[in-house]
Design a protein around this nucleic acid. Structure first.
Lengths: 189, 189
DNA sequence: GTCTATATAATGATAGAC
DNA sequence: GTCTATCATTATATAGAC
């Protein structure tokens, strides 16, 4: 972090605020308070608020790719790698309780705003979907792999939504256990 | 609908718009266009936008109670009644694809806004939770009933989120089948 | 590259005529 | 009960000095 550019600072702060407060609700005033620059200065780095969103999504895509690569290396077999995905709910449980899932809540908000970046934001989901499919394809027949990927993605989304609504971290633990049990049905390794 | 009061018209229009566009994004201008009254007239019926949200949540609570009562009468046994809940995803699949789940997307938005009505909005979830628990308690031991209720609630939330993000109705059908299969494990009737 | 000052539009909300 | 007119605030965005 020694030599982060102002642009990078803006994207990082916007990323956090969009997650915590939502995209529309987050104003340049909010971001400038964090980054400590004036509102006018934003327009040297970005043409519009939409462009900041673009950059935030790109950042999230890059971070997600990096995380998936890590899991690919760490997990010794497909089932163990899938458990890395499941356990992300545990790792991030405090933030999920407060703000929900960063991916699902953004796509949900952009859908309501009918925002042009809906497809772009959904690419984060697609990264997870394809990565999970790649794991499942080693455990089951080809046709089923994508369905299992979507199933698991959906399960984790539901957990995030309810943990947030009910302010309940223990519910996350319960459901993570169930997801791991479910996974064992397909773990032939 | 013959003699709906203006107040009722406002609440009905706001209910729809909050669902389709989100609470914060929906302005008095939007609502007034639907109800065909002037912006100033809102303040004869409500003191603030928050009060409209209050009324919308009350309306949703009443509608939900009515629906649950219907299911209670229609379903011949607990498992059949639970299937009424599951099938709501099929019944509303077009709107879910477009706007997600009205309950989950509102609680998610209010959490990000840190809005004082978060708890009130979550009561809709609680209605479903308790009703589902009442059904499951007839199928399993007491302790497990609430966990199963939350599990099913979470599953349906995840389905709604992904169906919306991926614009995929067929995914709803798939997951509904899985939920019905899952239910059979507990259907001892 | 960063700032101040400002333009423009929209928002929630109020006052008062009818 | 409904309207018009208006206020105060906030938002995104622009212009131009430094």
């Amino acid at each position: 972090m020694a030599h982060m550019t102002t642009r990078t600072h803006i994207v990082k702060a916007a990323d956090e605020l969009f997650y915590q407060q939502g995209y529309e609700h987050t104003s340049f005033a909010h971001i400038s308070r964090l980054v400590k620059i004036s509102r006018g200065n934003f327009y040297y780095h970005f043409k519009s608020k939409d462009e900041i969103l673009d950059a935030v999504i790109d950042r999230r895509l890059a971070n997600t790719r990096e995380m998936l690569d890590q899991w690919q290396k760490q997990g010794k077999n497909p089932a163990e790698r899938i458990r890395c995905f499941i356990r992300i709910l545990i790792m991030n449980r405090a933030k999920i309780k407060k703000y929900g899932c960063p991916v699902g809540t953004l796509t949900t908000e952009l859908a309501k705003l009918n925002h042009k970046n809906q497809n772009e934001a959904n690419k984060v989901f697609t990264l997870f979907r394809h990565w999970l499919k790649d794991q499942f394809i080693q455990l089951v027949h080809g046709d089923e792999a994508d369905r299992l990927a979507m199933h698991l993605l959906g399960r984790s989304q539901g957990v995030a939504t309810l943990a947030n609504s009910f302010q309940d971290e223990e519910y996350i633990n319960q459901e993570v256990r169930l997801m791991c049990d479910w996974l064992e049905k397909y773990n032939t390794g």
